[in-house]
Design a protein around this nucleic acid. Structure first.
Lengths: 230, 230
DNA sequence: GCGAATATGACACACCGGTGACCGCGCCCC
DNA sequence: GGGGCGCGGTCACCGGTGTGTCATATTCGC
């Protein structure tokens, strides 16, 4: 699943994991950092789309960190949501002045957090993920969550949909079972590699009524490839 | 945007000015009133498009004022956002029942305030009388608050109406339970996600006498979609 | 033709969503 | 002021679907 990437910076592991769990369930990629040093590394590394930043951090405070980021070229466009404990609200005025886009007071509900993230991402512009993928007569519509071949609708289950989505976003390239598990099932899911075979088969079955099954190709010894060419 | 007029009713001058500063920067016309008496005058005078109403006011409370307004002809359509201090959230449930369209807890970020104002105005603007949504034989009349299928009237409750309204305004797109709660119930309402299921069912029940229930579609693992196509 | 890799069918189980019932809260009407 | 009513939210239960695993068949490359 290719969602937006969110970096959570908080010194409490429990908070990070709670956030990660809920965001991943919504389709986000989540990276974690316990302090600003690790955060720097992650930012340079994965270029997150949004930063969830705890107000109280060991060493440099979240406020200073946000200010520092805002002075840098990449950080200027990086949306920031501050996490703060109740009672620190007055400080948040300063936080917002420094350039945070919003803040959430702990404890917060997952829904509230997600709502604010989506609001900020929407504002940051172009948050609507690529809406329709089309390849070799196959159409996959992310918005309506539909797959069609020509005029007909292709019935696929949730996992097959994600698998096909990944394939259509990365065609003409071979992926090993383990890579597919990573990218489609998620990094924190462990299942047998052979499971991929089964879902490949299910995907082919769904496609074969529309003469599109040959687009899912086996590369013996390496993995699978999605291609419009035979 | 042609500069909508917002009336701020709050006894603290600092709050009024902060709000005014931020709203004017966004292009709004802002009027101020320190109490309900002055507010009455302003309302009669400038016919504001939206009312920002402090919960605690000298004399008459914001709640009573809102209730009183709702009983009057002009006030019925006037969108109201309540301003409240943290800790009074429980009371706000009553505020919302009285007819406030949303509320914001102090201290709030300018962003948050503006986002909510825009959300409320969008909702209010969409319900200009005579505005009708039509899709697949279903008609939803915002003005008269009525739903009809062909010649027959479809009986739906308030929540089902809002749900259907949102769906018909955003067809052919999947929304997760969490998104629906955000967009239909509002960002500041916290209920169980499964509550959505129940209202989906109630909506379907209302529609099925008119053979329109199949327009409300389940996308397993993702959410719900409203569509004229099967 | 042989071994390894992949396809396929079957199956058990977890999970998701549908559904009916219940409860509590305002509100309105006696 | 009491009782009924409508509405909204929650819960518990159930049935179906989707998913992962395994055993077995089949194909591929050498």
């Amino acid at each position: 699943m290719t969602g937006k990437t969110v970096l959570v910076v908080d010194d409490e592991q429990a908070v990070r994991q709670m956030v990660a769990f809920n965001l991943e369930r919504e389709g986000y990629q989540v990276r974690q950092a316990a302090d600003t040093v690790a955060a720097r590394g992650e930012i340079a590394d994965v270029r997150p789309d949004l930063l969830l930043l705890d107000w109280m951090l060991p060493g440099m405070s979240g406020l200073e960190f946000a200010r520092a980021l805002r002075r840098e070229s990449y950080g200027q466009d990086l949306p920031i949501i501050m996490l703060t404990a109740r009672g620190e609200e007055e400080d948040m005025v300063r936080g917002l002045n420094v350039g945070a886009d919003d803040y959430v007071t702990k404890p917060f509900s997952p829904r509230e957090l997600i709502a604010r993230i989506e609001a900020v991402l929407r504002r940051a512009g172009a948050s609507a993920p690529g809406d329709v993928l089309e390849l070799g007569g196959l159409r996959l519509d992310l918005g309506s969550h539909r797959v069609s071949a020509g005029e007909q609708t292709v019935e696929v289950g949730p996992t097959e949909f994600r698998l096909l989505h990944f394939f259509m976003a990365h065609p003409e390239r071979v992926y090993s079972r383990s890579q597919l598990l990573d990218r489609v099932w998620g990094p924190s899911v462990y299942v047998e590699e052979r499971t991929v075979d089964v879902h490949i088969r299910r995907l082919r079955k769904a496609l074969e009524r529309h003469e599109a099954a040959q687009m899912v190709q086996t590369v013996r010894g390496s993995g699978y490839r999605f291609s419009a060419r035979p």
